[in-house]
């Protein structure tokens, strides 16, 4: 329980040193640089700002970034829950290996993932040549790259919840006459829902800002396959600092909102687990 005192008494040493260093480091490395976005944006007039962040090319990039991120995070929820379920509940050869492999998108550099996926899904690629429609250099290709980088989030959120889930609850449900599907929908699904939603939000937030894995497969055509982070970089390379900063400010506000949402969701999930 927090009291209104600045700090509760403790016999442990090092409070001033550790908190001082932490605050100093965060201020210098995170807060000062990030405040530049808002300071620079504040020097624009509201009219200029609004025109910059709502011009058609920018709007098209928001639609693409949000749409592809949403689609990718949704795919990840479905397959993330499925993978977590299979890993926790069933046994099959190679399970340990596959469990370890799930984190690959976190460990593999995004640029490496980007060129690998582009090569696979290009028209002449291993996968692309068998598909009747184009994948690389279309929004579909972007969605595939975003699905790859967001893959571990839902699995790693849902897995511990399933592991700590009491089998007795399912037994009771079955004894009371529910079918297996009913038990899943009415007993198991509500239990894993907060974790799956948190995983969705994490994957979505990550996808929204992702750059490395997307630039190669996107084709980067303005209005069609240009994601918002790339547009920021393009403006920067054309020395349009004001434009780049204004769009970055919009993205940053969205990131803050998502972060608060994720924190709230995580709190909800933890409460569920503790319960």
């Amino acid at each position: 329980m927090k009291k209104l005192k600045l700090k509760k008494h403790s016999i442990l040493p090092g409070f001033g040193l550790s908190l001082g260093f932490t605050t100093f480091y965060i201020s210098l490395l995170i807060l000062l640089p990030l405040s530049m976005i808002f300071i620079n944006t504040a020097s624009m007039s509201w009219q200029d700002f609004w025109t910059t962040v709502t011009e058609p090319r920018v709007m098209a990039s928001y639609r693409l970034s949000f749409g592809a991120s949403f689609a990718a995070a949704s795919i990840n929820v479905v397959f993330g829950v499925l993978i977590a379920w299979v890993l926790v509940r069933y046994s099959f050869p190679g399970k340990r290996l596959i469990d370890g492999l799930v984190d690959l998108p976190f460990a593999l550099p995004t640029a490496v993932a980007g060129i690998a996926l582009t090569t696979l899904y290009a028209e002449t690629g291993w996968v692309g040549q068998f598909l009747p429609f184009r994948v690389a250099f279309t929004p579909l290709g972007i969605t595939i790259a975003l699905t790859f980088i967001g893959l571990p989030f839902v699995v790693r959120m849902v897995q511990p919840v399933l592991q700590s889930f009491e089998k007795e609850t399912e037994e009771v449900s079955a004894i009371l006459g529910a079918t297996r599907l009913q038990t899943f929908r009415k007993v198991i699904l509500p239990e894993i829902f907060p974790a799956a939603l948190t995983g969705f939000a994490l994957a979505f937030a990550r996808a929204l800002g992702e750059y490395g894995s997307v630039v190669f497969i996107a084709g980067n055509m303005p209005m069609r396959t240009e994601i918002t982070p790339l547009l920021i970089l393009t403006k920067l390379e054309q020395y349009d600092y004001a434009g780049a900063t204004a769009i970055a400010a919009v993205m940053l506000v969205i990131s803050f909102v998502l972060l608060l949402l994720i924190n709230g969701l995580q709190w909800w999930t933890n409460k569920r687990i503790a319960h």
């Binding site: 620079n40 970055a248 924190n263």
Partner: peptide, 23 residues
């Protein structure tokens, strides 16, 4: 403080680079 520590995870790497160009 805990939320601030999470901040870089939520921010696009492009913005992470941009802020240092602005500085």
């Amino acid at each position: 403080l805990v939320t601030l520590i999470d901040l870089p995870f939520a921010i696009s790497p492009i913005i992470a680079g941009l802020v240092f160009v602005l500085l």
